[in-house]
């Protein structure tokens, strides 16, 4: 399979070109832009019902992942995320897994396993942020809201707003905390951040979806009060 990221950086899209029959790519439900009619789409409970349910419950990721399978070489499928922004491709190898913010996973080769169960996830449960661990061998495609900004973490570490995390490499340890104490949590607007330590690479997105949602909210009309009792 050949993958090419097109239309970077603002409205990126990926084109996967299959090289042989039976080759497949797994993508988050709703991300298909177009495909050849001969490419089979199977809405899958990848990894079985239980694994999918776990993914839904724990990872916040769409329960359904669609698998696109080629019937002949040269067939293509185009995939794009919901929001505007950049895409990146990563290669996962055994011993070099990648943590991906739920919502940032666009697609991956079938040889890549998505896991939500690993030690150390605890800190994120209370934080309303969930991560997928991509393991195995193969390519994964990750989407950002806005531009994708890599940070090489070493020495003193790095702090990133939870909502701006896209992905990070296995070598980083992390813990979720508040910045600026209690006053900071309620009034700073920064909410929860993730403190990374160790050596590795972190990718941030330049825009924050929660902040955008909070920006839109006041523009909603206010519900008219019910009249005459209930």
């Amino acid at each position: 399979m050949q993958t090419e990221i097109l239309q970077r950086p603002d409205f990126s899209m990926v084109r996967a070109t299959f090289e042989r029959a039976g080759e497949a790519i797994v993508a988050t439900a709703g991300t298909m832009v177009s495909r050849d009619t001969s490419v089979q789409m199977k809405t899958g409970l990848t990894g079985g019902l239980l694994a999918s349910a776990k993914r839904k419950l724990l990872g916040g990721e769409s329960l359904f992942l669609n698998t696109f399978t080629a019937s002949a070489p040269g067939e293509t499928v185009y995939l794009a995320p919901a929001a505007e922004g950049d895409l990146a491709e990563f290669r996962v190898r055994s011993g070099e897994s990648l943590f991906i913010h739920s919502g940032a996973f666009l697609a991956g080769e079938t040889t890549v396993k998505l896991d939500t169960k690993w030690g150390g996830a605890k800190g994120f449960f209370g934080a309303g942020m969930f991560l997928l661990k991509a393991e195995g061998e193969g390519r994964v495609l990750v989407n950002a809201y806005g531009a994708l900004h890599p940070v090489d973490v070493s020495g003193q570490g790095f702090i990133c707003d939870n909502e701006n995390i896209v992905a990070f490499t296995d070598g980083l340890q992390y813990d979720v905390r508040r910045i600026g104490g209690m006053k900071g949590l309620f009034f700073s607007g920064e909410g929860l951040v993730c403190h990374f330590r160790g050596r590795g690479r972190l990718w941030m997105q330049t825009r924050n979806p929660a902040r955008f949602a909070a920006w839109v909210h006041p523009f909603r009309r206010v519900k008219a009060k019910a009249q005459g009792g209930d």
């Binding site: 950049d86 940070v151 003193q156 707003d161 607007g189 825009r207």
Partner: peptide, 29 residues
């Protein structure tokens, strides 16, 4: 389209920002 400001501070220096503007920072800040 997706502009982000990278501010480098020497020890003791500071920058004031609108609430929620911080994307990331080093822990010595």
């Amino acid at each position: 389209s997706q502009a982000m400001a990278h501010v480098v501070l020497t020890p003791g220096e500071s920058v004031t920002a609108e609430s929620g503007a911080m994307v990331g920072m080093t822990p010595n800040v």
